[in-house]
Amino acid sequence: MMRTLWMNSERGALTAALGAALILPLSGCVTINAPEKPIRIDLNINVTQEVVYRLDKESKNLIEDNPDIFGGS
């Protein structure tokens, strides 16, 4: 009787240690909070400097050819 009791307590300690081993890594998790600032999606994201440089000459030609809608200088 004494022996079984001791064995039971030993098993209890083992399960407790096992449980702690399982819980410990969980407490180490990185918590992610929602940003306080509103998420702003920039619609100009696909307008890169490279694109602006590529279209620059054609854009200037368009302005020169259409003073009625772009104004003449």
Partner: peptide, 8 residues
């Protein structure tokens, strides 16, 4: 259209 408009 957005790219060309922005360049202009």
């Amino acid at each position: 259209v957005e790219q060309f408009a922005f360049t202009t």
